[in-house]
Amino acid sequence: MPLIRPTRRAVVARAGALAGLAAVGLMTPARAEGLAPTPTMRGGANNYRPGAPLVDRIGGGGFLMTGTVRRAGDGTPLPGRRIQVWAHTTEGHERDAASHGATLSREDGTFQMDMPQIVPAFGQPHGHLAYDAEYDDGAFATVFLRPVMARVDDKTLHVDFVLAPV
């Protein structure tokens, strides 16, 4: 005679828990695998300046561009990736060299750029960001972004890069 005689309720509960665990176990990697690469936005590359210098801040600063750089698929943070930022700001037009600056993502994949306040130009208050494979080790595909600010008086803008391995 078995020492343990599970009731029907216990069996259902354990089976359910097991199924749940299995589902979580199956789903977690599936979800990470599915982290899709960020597509280049239309108009994102407009007024881009290849090789804009690495800077601590653009102009006098006061507006904070923040973001993350991760690898598509597993979402691993990517440090040391060069991101160029530019916009029409209180200190200059998009095409001006002084409106451009680049920074490197940190160990945790985040980056930020202190820059002058973005002001509406060409119909929308918007920024531009670039990850250019030409200025990197070529392990990831180039991405150009053109995020639009939700409000004109926003003092910050956040952008996520998910890069596709080449």
Binding site: R42, G43, A45, N46, N47, H93, E94, R95, A121, F122
Partner: peptide, 9 residues
């Protein structure tokens, strides 16, 4: 003149 690529787009 202000932003050629935007107008071309």
């Amino acid at each position: 003149l202000t932003s050629p690529p935007d107008v071309i787009d």
